[in-house]
Amino acid sequence: MLKHYTSFRLSVLASLFLLLPGCIDQISADLPVPPNVLVVNSILTPDSVVRVQVSRVTSTVDSASRLLSSARVYLGTPSQGEELLRNQGRGLYVSPTKPVSGIPYTLRAEADGYPSASATDTMPAAIPIREAWYAYPTGTDRNNELLGTIVVRFDDPASTTNFYEITAYQRQGGRTDQSQNFVLDVRGNAALAAEGDAEFNPGSLVFSDRLFNGQAFELRASFHPFWGSGGGISNGQPVGPRVTGEVYVELRSISRAYYQYRKSWTRHFYNQGTKGPSGDLNQLLFLGDPTRMYSNVNGGYGVAASHAVVVQPLPLR
């Protein structure tokens, strides 16, 4: 089956390449001038100093660097005023400050010839994991390949709207295989189904507490282990994927800005036709319409968002 699919894919691509030379023509057009605004990006976390990247919007024919090393970037809080960040070159600006939960932080960037751009976000508090574990194997998929199960339980704070991101990975010999390859299948979970992300093959689980505000929450997800961590030949026979090394789960408490940005990024990434390591032929031939990325930057583009993370090893049950 794979051989026929590969041959079909190659034949389609070859046909496209044969047709393209006859379809190329040069035309003159006045391209619209891109907006003269700054792009400010930063992810704030309580266990790291503040790092901000500043760049500019450019056109496709602009060969100059997008990164701005001549900007002035300030970090402000209601109680301590503004602090000028240290310029490290190549558009990177750093403060020794480590954000604290519950405090709104404002980033403001200035550069000669550009309007000022600013964004504000409040660091959420980390939510502890009450219980978590994994089991393997617990079933098979439609291709008769073995599946495992991960269970994560935590208590959602009441009277506030909270947002979360969950990823899982396994570590073997000091090497970490992150969650873009460790896909969690959560079909049947109402809170995740309500997000409408499943069809976009998200690399992590991003969701709100809209359906369980103030209640205990349980995530039960199936997963495939990595081929690379257990595959090979044993006694002359091929060995399938299996769980080796330590398994971890990350529970991130994320801000509303992070939640909205991450969901828009998932749709944008899917729309590029890069759904996986080998892509997808239908996506390659029939890309979707462009999608707008979320931004909370006033006077510019980009995002300033925050999250607090709890990492916990999972025992085998």
Rank of each mutant, 00 (worst) to 15 (best):
V50Y: 01
V73A: 10
K275G: 12
V297G: 03
K3L: 15
S55W: 00
F212T: 13
Y301F: 15
E83C: 00
W227F: 14
L205Q: 12
N296I: 11
P315D: 04
F217I: 05
S79M: 03
T58Q: 06
G299V: 03
V57A: 07
F182A: 05
T160P: 07
V40A: 01
R66N: 12
T291C: 10
L211N: 11
A132L: 05
L184V: 12
S118G: 00
V49P: 06
F163C: 00
P46M: 06
T122P: 02
Q312M: 14
G288Q: 14
P34F: 07
S229P: 14
E131I: 06
C23E: 08
S295N: 02
V49F: 12
S7C: 10
N298I: 15
S69D: 06
Q170G: 13
S95G: 10
Q283D: 13
V33W: 04
G214F: 01
L67H: 09
R130H: 12
F154L: 01
P124N: 01
I233R: 12
E145D: 12
R242Q: 09
P157C: 02
Q260V: 09
F8Y: 11
Y134M: 07
L205C: 04
P277R: 12
Y169Q: 09
S264K: 05
V33K: 13
L147K: 15
N144H: 13
W265P: 01
G231L: 09
N235P: 08
M1Y: 04
I103F: 02
S79R: 12
K98G: 11
I254D: 03
L13I: 08
T176K: 13
I127H: 02
V297P: 04
N162S: 13
R153T: 15
G76W: 01
E131L: 02
R262S: 14
A190G: 02
Y294K: 05
P96F: 02
V239A: 13
L192G: 02
T244Y: 11
T266F: 04
D185C: 03
D289P: 13
D185N: 11
G299Y: 03
L192E: 00
I103D: 07
P115M: 07
P104H: 07
G174F: 01
V61W: 04
V152K: 02
T244K: 07
S15K: 10
V100E: 14
D177F: 15
L107V: 14
N271P: 12
D156P: 01
P104G: 10
T120I: 04
P34A: 10
G230R: 11
N162T: 05
